[in-house]
């Protein structure tokens, strides 16, 4: 396929065409925080960002969403499902976040049982990824298996070459998105392709300085849980939800009812294995009563259970979990642990 390019000055034309066909989600700043939000007419996406503070997943798996509604009527209870999926374009997502969708895709289709809320949105979504112009501090995407210049799961990949983006079309869906504004694109010249390749090489070379060793993740996870560092780590864990809610691959949720006037909504919202009440049963029994059991679950799910069950690591190296208020950096801990040779 011919490589294309689009001048930055033509980007609004493309976005306009996309927005006429679909809900376009792009990075924007909201009260000092960068996140993916739906572009309203006239909104400019903020594309010179490091990474969004909150992860891309919330476009397809909202922090809170209504699953069903019910109404009490003279004929009895009326229960209805809610479907708010619509044609959607994700514009300007970083490769790590895009790669995170892969883990969620597999989790939400686990056991052959499709989560309709995820699947309906995902199937209607075109992902346009934007390669990082510079390494984001704390990013170790390549160490977590992320293809930083052409991420799996993207339909289109844009690489910044100064006044323009070089465009890689990776799927039919991506081609359709490009075709919407075909006059905004031109064929990429040889020097454009070289510029894009060099941008990628520079990025990877710089990222190499931030690399950590996550080879043999399962062995590392187990070794870490036996290491002297572990006791300090779980003792200081505050059991909050930052690491899970900011993680591009965490998908645990709670379901609860909210009633009002003869009816109500059943919603689901993010939940976390770190929470003290996550596994607490009505009778009082709690399978994971302390931060030790809870954080063990997190470590093992990310680096052992997840890879075993879904075939991919539960980490994409975005580094958001380093917002931990007590400086728990599980990836760094794992990278430093001594992995013993199997006996």
């Amino acid at each position: 396929m011919d490589r294309l390019k689009i001048l930055k000055s033509r980007l609004p034309d493309w976005l306009g065409k996309l927005r006429a066909q679909a809900a376009v989600y792009a990075p924007v700043e909201r009260a000092g925080v960068t996140c993916f939000a739906r572009l309203a007419p006239g909104d400019e996406p903020q594309l010179d960002y490091g990474n969004t503070d909150t992860p891309l997943k919330e476009v397809l798996f909202p922090q809170t969403e209504c699953l069903i509604t019910w109404q009490r009527t003279p004929e009895g209870l009326q229960v209805q499902e809610v479907d708010t999926s619509e044609p959607t374009v994700i514009f300007g997502a970083r490769p790590c976040d895009v790669t995170g969708l892969r883990f969620l895709d597999r989790a939400f289709r686990l056991g052959g049982i499709e989560d309709p809320y995820w699947v309906r949105r995902r199937d209607k979504t075109t992902v346009i990824s934007l390669v990082c112009p510079h390494p984001v501090p704390g990013c170790f995407g390549p160490s977590a298996g992320v293809n930083e210049t052409s991420p799996e799961g993207a339909d289109v990949v844009l690489t910044d070459i100064g006044s323009a983006y070089v465009v890689e079309v990776k799927s039919e869906q991506g081609q359709a998105a490009v075709d919407l504004a075909s006059d905004a694109f031109t064929s990429a010249a040889e020097e454009d392709l070289i510029a894009a390749r060099e941008a990628g090489e520079t990025l990877l070379a710089e990222l190499a300085e931030q690399a950590i060793d996550l080879e043999e993740p399962e062995a590392r996870a187990k070794a870490f849980l036996q290491s002297p560092a572990w006791e300090q780590v779980w003792n200081r864990c505050l059991s909050c939800g930052i690491c899970a809610f900011l993680c591009p691959t965490c998908h645990c949720f709670d379901i609860c009812d909210q009633s009002c006037r003869g009816g109500g909504e059943r919603i689901r919202c993010y939940d976390t294995c770190s929470s003290k009440i996550y596994t607490k049963q009505a009778g009082g029994h709690n399978a994971r009563p302390t931060a030790k059991e809870r954080l063990t679950q997190r470590v093992m799910h990310k680096f052992s259970y997840g890879p075993e069950r879904l075939g991919v690591l539960g980490c994409v190296g975005c580094g958001r979990c380093r917002r931990c208020p007590v400086d728990i950096d599980l990836q760094l801990e794992l990278s430093r642990v001594e992995v013993k040779e199997p006996v």
Binding site: G111, I113, H251, R268, D271, C273, Y278
Partner: peptide, 8 residues
């Protein structure tokens, strides 16, 4: 159905 994570 194996999505919400609680009984992992």
């Amino acid at each position: 159905i194996g999505k919400c994570g609680r009984c992992n």
